[in-house]
Design a protein around this nucleic acid. Structure first.
Lengths: 148, 148
DNA sequence: TAAATTCCTATTAATTTTATAGGAATTATA
DNA sequence: TATAATTCCTATAAAATTAATAGGAATTTA
């Protein structure tokens, strides 16, 4: 399951994406309108900023904003950054690979590994290539439009 | 990511599946051969037994065994039982549905919900219909054979 | 009756997740 | 230039979940 943190991040990014091009938006506004704990959201947005996903402006009338158009922000990047691996097993992760701590097999003989490679690929097939704009478009119930 | 518990469960079931039809196999043997903490494995197998996935025999020369043929044990059932929901969001789960605790939207308007329904379905397409026997067959690198 | 096992409940330890606190730095504008 | 509104940053705490252990009762075989 996605962590609350990841859900907050995605909701906040959607909020900013729907207002792309406007003045910077303060944390307080997002936190109030989307019912998130202020300080937790602050930490999340700061991380996203320090990772190059968001821009910010300090001081009065400051706030956060998207550095790129919503159509250019890949959901898979956001999810990986906030939540970590897409895969179900470390040994099968493309971006966070490590050997499974509890696996009794040599990696290339492991039945679980082969199985969860398939699961990972199915998941990636849905997620990869989808942008924040795609997510925003989904909200209204329109047919999904892809960003590429 | 799958919990260590789930990985242990799947490895243990595979161990039993590969020995289907033999005498009951004691926890100690599985724990040693598959490098799992004895007491943790004991708790896991007990749960699986109490949920009708495993049978057991107490006392000397007792142990655990599969109640059904490996081809009749659905992986999706095991995973759900040990690990919980397949879905990434509670509001999208088929078997463990609940409203998302942190969601600011009415459910039918939520962009995340629509997106993660697609992810869930892609995952289920791979997992559903796969049996323990399919998992066992994967180990050797043979082409996957489906149980139905 | 002894040995080997499961059965069961309780407890502890470790890790991860979800926050909160508090103040420094920055910026707009009155 | 003072004030208010904001981000920036580090540290800490609280809560929840996961991983594991303890210990003894009950069962079964031989």
């Amino acid at each position: 399951m996605l962590s609350a943190k990841t859900q907050y991040a995605l909701h906040a990014l959607t909020y900013l994406g729907e207002r792309y091009g406007q003045d910077p938006i303060p944390i307080s506004r997002i936190a109030e309108e989307r019912k998130m704990p202020y300080k937790f959201l602050e930490a999340i947005l700061l991380e996203l900023r320090n990772n190059g996903i968001l821009g910010s402006k300090a001081g009065k009338s400051g706030g956060y904003y998207l550095l790129k158009k919503p159509a250019e922000i890949q959901l898979v990047d956001v999810i990986r950054f906030v939540d970590g691996p897409i895969a179900q097993l470390p040994c099968v992760s493309k971006k966070f690979y490590e050997p499974c701590r509890v696996c009794p097999y040599p990696e290339d003989k492991c039945h679980l590994r082969k199985f969860f490679i398939q699961v990972r690929d199915a998941t990636l097939n849905v997620i990869e290539g989808k942008s924040l704009q795609d997510l925003i478009n989904m909200e209204s119930g329109f047919p999904v439009e892809f960003s590429i």
